[in-house]
């Protein structure tokens, strides 16, 4: 009897650690990541990663379909796969205005593991490498002069085509827009004071330069100078009292986790 129990110990230990054994430094375990996915993500994103989990039909903003490798929150140029750190950023911060919450309470290992698993839904991750992230120069600072210049930038780049003359998301092309999945999508109302992909000035800057993959929002990286982009950021911040108007305030706000 004792002998048999002794035999079971390595079997038990094997079962226990099998899931974690594939973890190498820096990258996650796909095998454990599948369990993390099933525990936390499956109900919305679906067993096949197609964004059609059991809860998806009740959601106005649909969960991401992972099969195409397109992600809105990226530091990489339009068309590129995201970096792992981009995906982790979304796990840490969630997506405001959607059902995607922050997963900060999870341990970093679980986050790494689930990122490795999510990447298996798109064959692109096996054949392509993400491009280098865009460079975001320091915010020169919010000022009335910058806002005034940004007003001209908003006109020059025809942002009003979709976002409307007052930034309320009511431009001539605002209607009938569709995302990659054929779902209706509207341009963001820039006066609402919160950006889905983050509310710091760098978050707004990044959206211009990377575009929002899978949506009509294109990249302006090839046409807009960084000086113009910062002025435009400040103009957009001027549209809403809800935007943190300078980097320091935004950073302090984030530290305490105030994202409501």
């Amino acid at each position: 009897m004792f002998y048999r129990v002794g035999q079971l110990i390595p079997v038990f230990a094997g079962l226990l650690f099998a899931a974690g054994s594939a973890t190498a430094a820096g990258t996650g375990s796909v095998k454990t990541g599948k369990l993390v996915y099933e525990r936390y993500c499956l109900s919305c994103h679906g067993a096949e990663g197609n964004g059609q989990g059991e809860a998806a039909e009740y959601m106005a903003v649909k969960p991401r379909d992972y099969r195409q490798g397109t992600y809105k929150w990226r530091t990489t140029p339009s068309g590129s796969l995201p970096l792992d750190s981009d995906l982790e950023h979304t796990l840490l911060n969630g997506l405001h205005g959607t059902y995607m919450p922050t997963w900060r309470a999870l341990d970093q290992r679980s986050r790494r593991d689930v990122i490795s698993y999510i990447k298996t839904f798109s064959p692109r991750f096996a054949t392509e490498k993400p491009q280098d992230p865009i460079v975001i120069p320091p915010d020169p600072g919010y000022s009335d002069a910058s806002v005034a210049r940004g007003t001209a930038v908003y006109k020059k780049y025809n942002c009003s085509q979709c976002h409307g003359p007052g930034g309320q998301g009511d431009g001539p092309s605002a209607h009938e827009l569709k995302d990659d999945w054929g779902n209706a999508i509207v341009p963001y109302d820039l006066t609402k004071g919160h950006v889905k992909c983050g509310d710091q000035s760098t978050d707004i800057y990044r959206v211009f330069m990377t575009g929002l993959a899978g949506t009509p929002m294109p990249t302006f990286a090839d046409s807009m100078s960084s000086a113009d982009a910062w002025d435009l950021v400040h103009f957009i911040q001027s549209l809403s009292p809800g935007y943190a108007k300078n980097m320091m305030a935004a950073a302090a706000d984030r530290k305490t986790g105030a994202t409501q």
């Binding site: 226990l16 650690f17 899931a19 974690g20 369990l35 993390v36 525990r39 341990d107 290992r109 593991d113």
Partner: peptide
């Protein structure tokens, strides 16, 4: 917690 937190002992 031994093993991964998602399926631990």
């Amino acid at each position: 917690w031994l093993g991964p937190l998602v399926a631990p002992l």
